[in-house]
């Protein structure tokens, strides 16, 4: 195609904190099954996202939505306006770039970008106040994203978040905190031991996360 630009090319957006080199990034992107979705309303649910993105799913080709990882405010554990959608196939991710990116979800125009793949910890916002960096600098009033920029109107934000604030209070980080969504089909073995998926023994029960009672800096929060 020479006459127009394809819409399913990766944009300039890169995971700014990823340390892999550019060529390797391009390589990952050209096989990527994961999308970063931006400009979501804080109130948009995973099921709304699922419904829209399932329009690009192609189960007949072995595809489908593998999982959705909601971006959360690191401090409040509430959605902060982005998510990752992971499909089973690369073609589905490309289709979303062509047909969904730039259309509305929950009455906001959302943006999709090919992503190198979810890495532990990326579900949390990186802004100083816990949300996304862009909301730190925002000057406008955006009712879908907690009103004024994070520096102002904190009370107003709290009130509007009531609807969603309960949902992710149990969100965890660390290995195994985010479910995989189900792998490819494989022959079922008879022995029970083999049935169990590879979860490390520490995963269950003992990594309950207690949110710190005081926060020195965002950095400390993550390092603890």
């Amino acid at each position: 195609m020479n006459v127009v630009q394809r819409l399913d090319q990766p944009s300039n957006y890169k995971d700014s904190q990823s340390r892999v080199d550019r060529r390797y990034q391009d390589d990952l992107l050209s096989n990527s099954t994961t999308l970063y979705i931006g400009n979501l309303s804080f109130y948009t649910t995973e099921e709304q996202i699922y419904e829209l993105f399932s329009k690009c799913a192609n189960p007949e080709d072995g595809g489908g939505i593998k999982r959705i990882i909601m971006g959360l405010d690191r401090n409040t554990r509430t959605p902060c306006g982005f998510c990752f959608v992971e499909y089973y196939t690369h073609a589905e991710a490309l289709a979303s770039m062509r047909y969904i990116s730039g259309t509305k979800l929950d009455e906001r125009i959302i943006r999709c970008d090919l992503d190198m793949g979810y890495k532990e910890g990326r579900q949390f916002g990186r802004g100083k106040s816990g949300g996304q960096v862009r909301d730190e600098h925002r000057q406008d009033y955006d009712p879908g994203r907690g009103g004024w920029g994070a520096q102002a109107q904190r009370l107003e934000i709290e009130r509007r978040r009531q609807e969603v604030e309960e949902r992710y209070v149990d969100a965890q980080d660390g290995p195994g905190a985010v479910a995989g969504g189900g792998e490819e089909w494989r022959e079922v073995e008879n022995s029970e031991g083999k049935l169990k998926r590879g979860r490390s023994p520490g995963d269950e029960g003992d990594n309950e996360r207690t949110v710190g009672s005081f926060i020195v800096s965002p950095r400390c929060q993550r390092l603890r």
Binding site: R67, R167, V178
Partner: peptide
């Protein structure tokens, strides 16, 4: 609570679901 919560619940209790699906409350056929 959400699609992710569903996946977490299923993944955490896969052996349970498999046992349920196998018919007996004790694990048997595959």
């Amino acid at each position: 609570r959400s699609f992710s919560h569903l996946l977490n619940a299923i993944e955490r209790y896969l052996p349970l679901l498999r046992t349920l699906a196998s018919g007996g409350v004790t694990s048997a056929a595959s």
